[in-house]
Amino acid sequence: ILSSAMDEGIARDGRIIGFGGGVVCDMAAFAASVYMRGCHLTLVPTTLLCMVDASVGGKAAIDFKGLKNMVGSFYPADEVLISFDTLRTLSDKEFLNGLAEVIKHALLSQDEELYKLLLTKKNEILSRESEALKLLLALSLAVKIWYIEQDPTESLGIRQMLNLGHTFGHALESSSHFALGGHGICVAWGTGRALEAGVALGITDKAYASGATKLFKSYGYDMDYRIGRGDWIDFREHLLKDKKKEAGKVLFVLMEGQGKATLKPLDMQVVQHLVIKKPIF
């Protein structure tokens, strides 16, 4: 991207356009953020995952040395253009990758409107009916934007709550060499582990955690997946390289209740139990 921009003689008032999924939009955004110290940026997300996650919020990052989002910057796009028609072109697996982030947003929302929509309109959502998707996307984006506006550059400990499920999920993605179906699939699984961790520590109400897990399962996510004992060391190594650290300790987003999340470190023995042993619900 940078080489093409230079070859075409694009100046700082030029524009880089990312048209595609999360990888394309992240690469375009990162390139725009560093090209001549920043040029104009337009994002046209074509997947549900990118629409509700990568295209909004200004995080521009790329993977490095096999680890998720290790090199990046904060660089919001000048404009984001969304066409609902592209959602009908996605495979079921790719659609579910994006829907996992939507369900995550439902747990983080300050109200239960998105959660209830997911419960009552499952068939319409999975059938990708236009009106259901428009409402789904609007409510999901509203949740993310609320957190971003409170803490644009993740300096106040508020925006980090959007990382629910990501600490576990990123480690699973990296340790499995990105072979388990995609980012959203791993985030759904990671959110399940975070809910179990919260219950184990007395932070999360078991009924709330069980209900949230059942919601994921109702959309077809494998919440019961466990890594093999022989894979633990590799999983742990990727986990320890996670960028969400404080005083050298990896932090996990745990749920205190609807729309109430907290950052906590977890003992590695607890983590090992959560990712290997049989689910508690």
Results as ranks from 00 to 15, higher is better:
Ser140Ile: 11
Tyr115Ser: 09
Cys50Val: 05
Tyr221Thr: 06
Ala77Arg: 05
Glu8Phe: 15
Leu81Asp: 06
Ser3Lys: 15
Cys186Ile: 04
Glu124Pro: 02
Ala29Pro: 03
Gly211Met: 07
Leu126Thr: 07
Cys186Thr: 13
Glu79Met: 04
Leu215Thr: 04
Val250Gly: 00
Glu237Gly: 08
Asn69Arg: 10
Pro76Asn: 07
Met223Gly: 03
Ser73Met: 11
Leu266Cys: 03
Leu135Gly: 02
Ser33Asp: 04
Lys264His: 13
Glu101Asp: 05
Ala32Asn: 02
Asp26Phe: 00
Leu81Cys: 08
Leu239Glu: 09
Asn123Ser: 15
Leu107Val: 10
Ala207Trp: 05
Ala212Ile: 06
Asn97Trp: 00
Leu139Tyr: 12
Leu2Pro: 01
Gly202Ser: 06
Ser155Thr: 12
Thr204Glu: 11
Arg12Ala: 13
Gly182Ile: 08
Asn123Thr: 14
Asp222Leu: 09
Glu149Lys: 15
Ala32Trp: 00
Val275Gly: 02
Lys260Ile: 12
Leu135Thr: 11
Leu99Thr: 08
Lys277Trp: 00
Asp7Met: 12
Tyr115Glu: 14
Ala247Val: 09
Pro152Ile: 15
Gly14Ile: 07
Val199Ala: 05
Val270Leu: 15
Trp189Tyr: 09
Leu156Cys: 10
Ser91Leu: 07
Leu240Tyr: 04
Leu107Asn: 10
Gly21Phe: 07
Pro265Arg: 06
Phe64Leu: 15
Ser91His: 05
Ile280Asn: 03
Gly182Arg: 01
His183Tyr: 08
Ala194Ser: 15
Ala138Glu: 15
Tyr75Met: 08
Ile82Tyr: 09
Asp7Arg: 12
Ala188Met: 09
Leu108Pro: 06
Lys217Ala: 12
Asp92Ser: 13
Gly230Tyr: 07
Gly66Met: 11
Val143Lys: 06
Glu101Tyr: 00
His40Val: 01
Ala60Gly: 08
Leu139Gln: 14
Glu196Asp: 05
Val102His: 04
Thr167Lys: 01
Tyr75Cys: 12
Ser127Glu: 14
Glu113Phe: 08
Phe216Cys: 02
Phe216Arg: 02
Phe95Cys: 10
Ser55Val: 05
Ala194Cys: 12
Val56Tyr: 02
Val199Pro: 04
Ala207His: 10
Leu254Ala: 02
Gly182Cys: 05
Asp53Arg: 00
Ile103Cys: 01
Lys122Met: 06
Leu126Gln: 07
Val275Trp: 05
Ala61Tyr: 09
Gly248Phe: 02
Leu139Gly: 03
Leu136Gln: 04
Gly220Ala: 06
Lys241Gln: 13
His105Asn: 13
Leu108Gly: 08
Gly184Ile: 06
Asp7Val: 13
Leu136Cys: 10
His105Phe: 08
Ser3Leu: 14
Ser140Cys: 08
Arg12Cys: 11
Met223Gln: 03
Lys245Trp: 05
Leu162Asp: 05
Asp224Lys: 10
Phe64Tyr: 15
Arg236Glu: 15
His183Arg: 01
Asp222Phe: 05
Val250Lys: 02
Leu180Tyr: 07
Asp231Ala: 10
Leu126Val: 07
Ala212Lys: 02
Asp92Val: 13
Trp146Asp: 15
Arg229Lys: 14
Leu2Cys: 06
